[in-house]
Design a protein around this nucleic acid. Structure first.
Lengths: 336, 336
DNA sequence: CTGAAAGCGCTTACAG
DNA sequence: CTGAAAGCGCTTACAG
């Protein structure tokens, strides 16, 4: 199977490589007659330009590197979907790494992305990276001149653009609304502690508890293997009747554990989660949750990145904070 | 921010580009002294080799193109995860396209993958592609000499390797076991009709119904908007007490609709789905389902592809059909 | 309107 | 042990 090059086509047509190249690129320098001959032959021989050679000259690859912590979580799946859709509609390819929350994998993939000369990067930081507060690998990339956009799991310590939601505000609101609907003792539950989003949500929760003057209760669960046990003991110790869970999966696990142990939702315990995924939407009872606009965050990240690549942005970093909202469903009591 | 090239380093060190290149690649031709000087300077200046230039010479990109229909379905998310893990552990990058079940998007991304000169492709076909039975875009790729591995949504009409599970067999088994557990009238429900997997699962179901000599009942639902309505009318018309659903989401929708309308699961209606995702595992009742080994299919696809790329495989196409199994949970009556 | 030449950043066969 | 040269497959400034 021969892969034709410009040289091959040139030889076949008895013209120069320059002429072939210009013809294929619709240069006005070339006569229509020649252009048509070249194009016809190219088509006939299934000529496909070598993108690497083109990129080498053009000094851009039309490729974006994407790093997400995982793809099983519906938030990241939706974000990835948004990223891919927007990128491909703007003519960019996506190369992807799933960090599995490991800083090592994140850093390694950054290296291969750099050598692939991606035009830019979209990253949602690994848990480990946020816990260690170690951004040296990202700084290296930025110093190398590659634009970076962070989303969701972000940090303000880095000189780059980012996209997120108003985690603090919405967590506070969710807590207060559970309180207004009649919950006396609301807990904050998280399996993603040490991430930036968890931090802001927790702070929002704490602010609300302070406002209503109730002692806060934070339930951090390290591992889904001990989820039910930890949750139930916390429940009993503190007679909790409302739970703000930091992500979708932990919210569903909460509902499930609680129901299996005989509690009624929402009558005895209310639950609010984060992320609007199928699971929460279709669960029985369905989950009241914070709409995080995952797809939109993905799309905005791409738009911001590409604008940055094209130099359409001022030096000032752009930080887009989306206003989120609560999707009221069956895991909470009605406010009215 | 200067990006150093071999030339830059060579100039700084007063040696030739060849010497720098060889040093960096640990060529035994070079004296250790020179090698160390070169490496030190490279490190100091944050030299990152230009992968495009290297690939251009080496005629390989260490990049694999991946096309999946979507990433929200947990089967594909898990498969992607497996693909990424295996590929990165073998030193390959992944560029990804989400076809959204569109043949057009599939074909377009194939074009950009070809010009990016991916070393190989892993594809799970779009619904539209399977419905139209139009593989011309894939054939073009194969003829161009790029190895292709199909998984899950496959076709045997193409000269390429593939990975799948024994859909026919396991669907037949699932149907028969529902029958043995006491179901009299089992239906097959699908929202992914026209795909190869649906076809085989349906055939397995039909074979089982023939064996037990019961008139089959096939419920195809086009759109989740009309899911509940269509399902319920079918349920009433045929007094169905067992449902084999072709994927996870439709199985969950089935359970949900059925419960909301007052049926008891599994006492009145049994449900078996496909794919072992969180949603089915954590739903109440939890879903009895077919383990499709999504991650393993992804990993095997990569291994097969890379073996093929490296020329380690004989001309004969390898078709790996995994033996699947049923995960018994709460949506079916116990067999014992 | 067409083509020769240089160059993008590498690697490697060959010469010394 | 080191380097000059050719070449991977393109594009484009320049000459004619």
């Amino acid at each position: 199977m021969q892969k034709y090059t410009l040289k091959d086509l040139a030889k076949l047509l008895n013209v120069s490589v320059s002429t072939v190249s210009k013809s294929l690129n619709d240069s006005p320098e070339i006569s229509t007659e020649t252009r048509d001959r070249v194009k016809e032959l190219a088509l006939l021989n299934n000529y496909i330009p070598n993108g690497m050679a083109q990129s080498l000259k053009a000094r851009e690859t039309k490729t974006i590197g994407v790093i997400i912590p995982n793809v099983l979580d519906s938030f990241f799946a939706k974000a990835l979907d948004g990223i891919e859709t927007m990128a491909s509609s703007l003519g960019y390819r996506i190369i992807i790494c799933i960090s599995n929350d490991s800083i090592k994998k994140e850093a390694e993939s950054l290296s291969t992305f750099l050598s692939a000369r991606v035009d830019g990067l979209i990253i949602s930081l690994a848990k480990e990276t946020q816990r260690n507060n170690d951004f040296s690998h990202i700084i290296k990339v930025i110093n190398y001149g590659i634009p970076v956009v962070l989303f969701d799991r972000i940090t303000t310590q880095l000189p780059c653009d980012y996209v997120s939601i108003d985690d603090f505000k919405i967590a506070k609101k969710a807590t207060l609304e559970m309180y207004e609907s009649g919950c006396k003792q609301i807990a904050y539950l998280s399996t993603i502690y040490d991430t930036s989003v968890d931090l802001h949500r927790k702070k929002g929760y704490l602010a609300a508890m302070k406002r209503i003057n109730v002692k806060p209760c934070i339930i951090n669960i390290k591992d889904y293997g001990v989820f039910e046990k930890n949750l139930l003991s916390a429940l009993k110790r503190n007679s909790i009747d409302g739970i703000l869970a930091a992500d979708e999966l932990s919210a569903i696990f909460t509902i499930r554990s609680v129901i299996k142990n005989g509690y009624k939702i929402p009558e005895e315990i209310s639950v609010i989660g984060f992320t609007n995924g199928f699971m929460g939407e279709k669960f029985l009872p369905s989950l009241t949750t914070v709409e995080q606009y995952a797809g939109k965050q993905g799309k905005l990240s791409v738009e911001t990145l590409i604008a940055r690549i094209r130099g359409e942005l001022t030096k000032k970093k752009v930080s887009t904070v989306l206003k989120s909202k609560i999707l009221y469903r069956d895991s909470t009591k009605s406010l009215e």
